[in-house]
Amino acid sequence: MSLRLEQVGVVHANGRRALAAVDLAVAAGTRVALIGPSGAGKTTLLRVAAASLRPTEGRVALLDAQPWALGARALRSLRSRVGVVHQAPPIPPRLRVVSAVLAGRLGQWGLARALRSWVAPADAAGARDALARVGLAERLFDRCDQLSGGQLQRVAVARTLYQSPRLLLADEPVSALDAATADAVLRELVDYSTAAGATFVASLHAVDLALRWFPRVVGVRDGRVMFDLPAADVTPERLAALYAGDLAQEGERPVEESGHGATPPLASA
């Protein structure tokens, strides 16, 4: 098992409950999409899965280790094998693209290599390869503040690909991208996970993308798992129940796409 959550609950410091009794097991090398209305707890679930948020209840195991029972060094090493694509790229604008990508391996590098890479990029070739996969190879030595928001998100994806994690997590990775680029970036992430045998869990607010790229779909609402089904079994009725009352989603969700195995409407770049 790449990821196993048992009866996981999270109550934030302000008393608000974000997750309740979540059970989720994801086998190594498989792909799972998390869908659900905004505020459902998808981000919290992914943070728990990334060992960056400690659940207040329940048990977590990732990559066959229990993160919160590990010592500091082992926890760091475990985290370096989990890659996260965040919804907003956490990249300082003054950083150069090459450094932003290389920072993906800081967890695997020792102090000396990190410092050397800060002075002069340690592995420009590796960074360029990762950037080429998201179509930004020629921006290697540009500064990140010269990129558009969508391009910056692709740099963040390149960073995670460069990290080459065993468990790939993505929190709304393509919500800031146009439809064609979103599809291309998801394809890159899926290709990586297939080629590397890495597990891939992503939250997506575009249901059509979830159904197209992920064989298994988990519906989350109010901090609970509503359904956990093969993509083919996610019916429009289940989606309607999942998103009931969610204003943000109602208009955007392509109704004709919420069936199974429909033809992709987007040109894949």
Partner: peptide, 19 residues
Amino acid sequence: PARALLAAGSGRVGALCFG
């Protein structure tokens, strides 16, 4: 940015320099 690097296993100095 620094928190994201720490969450990916980076050490303090790495998070300082790149985050």
